[in-house]
């Protein structure tokens, strides 16, 4: 978890603490991840205690990971946007629109004549284009991100309903579902994709110029501009990247359900933002962690699985989810204050 670069690159944060006190360890990104690991382990212990072998079972773990894969890919993209000082409320709607566009009869016709990969490319293209529009509105149109993406949320889902005529579009292209249903060494392809996206996201955020610019833009856009970074162009790229992730998530969801529908991706924006925030990424930007986000996603999906195994209601689960978010944010604020002092 050597994400110390996050702290180094963020202009606001203090220089890396030299003393090795417990407080400093907790305040460091590695320390925050330790907290998440502890939370996840506690949750798993809860699962084992209450559900025993039904929880600690390879098939069940794969069930959790498959559930995590779709929302996980969106969350990795969301980490970039939030680290860059933005927010995107339209991700669920973009997933829905991409899934619908990629499963229209026209797209399926082309895919049938050529290759099923056309469906995946269409989803990526639509998602990327939506992200591009969001980014342009925010960076060049100077619309506040919250409002711009709120508008996209309404418009994209509406467009998805128009295109699909509110019907569920079924995929009949051979090979498509078979590819995503397959396993690599016992790991489902969906989970492999999530892992690849997470690793690629980590490298991009922590080991490239693009990542350092993201921290700089999120931490202090004015300083970033004076340092010679094209802040507006970078903002557009961040939203386009998240759009691509949404497109990929749509393709994964199409494979999982063999359908495209305007109802897909309901409230994914909240799930993704929640996972990013409890992972330790600052909502105000400038600090972000992909590993934290992955843990955040796993914590929520494991919670959901433990509740399902124990016959507990979705409503109680929502309350538990809310409590976890509040505790995580309170903890985060304390740590931020301590590292700032």
């Amino acid at each position: 978890m050597s994400e110390d670069t996050a702290a180094v690159a963020a202009p606001q944060s203090t220089p890396v603490a030299k003393e090795s006190s417990v407080a400093a360890l907790l305040a460091s990104p590695a320390g925050r991840n330790t907290g998440l690991v502890v939370a996840l382990v506690l949750l798993c212990l809860g699962g084992v205690v209450t559900a025993g072998d039904r929880f600690a079972d390879v098939d069940n773990v794969l069930t959790i990971l498959r559930l995590a894969a779709v929302i996980g890919v969106v969350s990795v993209g969301m980490t970039f946007v939030i680290t860059g000082g933005g927010i995107d409320l339209s991700v669920g709607a973009i997933v829905a629109l991409s899934s619908v566009w990629a499963t229209t009869l026209a797209t399926q016709g082309i895919a049938n004549d050529t290759h099923w990969i056309v469906i995946v490319f269409t989803a990526l293209l639509v998602g990327g284009a939506c992200g591009l529009v969001n980014g342009m509105l925010i960076a060049y149109g100077r619309v506040v991100a919250f409002i711009a993406t709120l508008a996209s949320l309404a418009a994209a889902r509406g467009l998805a309903e128009i295109i699909s005529n509110r019907k569920t579009q079924i995929v009949n292209v051979p090979g498509f579902a078979a590819f995503f249903d397959a396993s690599v060494l016992g790991v489902p392809v969906l989970v492999v994709i999530f892992a690849v996206v997470a690793v690629a996201g980590w490298v991009l955020l922590n080991r490239t110029t693009f990542g350092r610019r993201t921290f700089a833009v999120g931490g202090n856009p004015e300083a970033a501009r004076l340092a010679g970074i094209d802040v507006r162009r970078h903002t557009v790229l961040l939203y386009a990247l998240l759009g691509l992730c949404c497109g990929l998530a749509a393709a994964m969801l199409i494979a999982r359900t063999t359908t495209g529908s305007a109802t897909h991706g309901g409230l994914y924006e909240l799930d993704a933002i929640a996972a990013v925030v409890i992972g330790g990424t600052l909502l105000s930007g400038g600090r972000g962690t992909i590993a934290g986000t992955v843990f955040g996603v796993l914590i929520f999906t494991t919670l959901s699985n433990v509740f399902t195994l124990n016959n507990l209601s979705i409503s109680a689960q929502a309350v538990a989810k809310g409590a976890i978010i509040v505790v995580a944010v309170l903890l985060q604020q304390r740590l931020a204050r301590r590292s700032g002092a």
Binding site: L267, N305, N311
Partner: peptide
């Protein structure tokens, strides 16, 4: 009877059914 409570998220409902299959 094992009831998993309602969801309008197909991704989640699929995983609920997968849990039943595992069980």
């Amino acid at each position: 009877l094992r009831v998993v409570e309602g969801t309008n998220d197909v991704n989640l409902q699929i995983s609920q059914v997968e849990t039943f299959i595992n069980d």
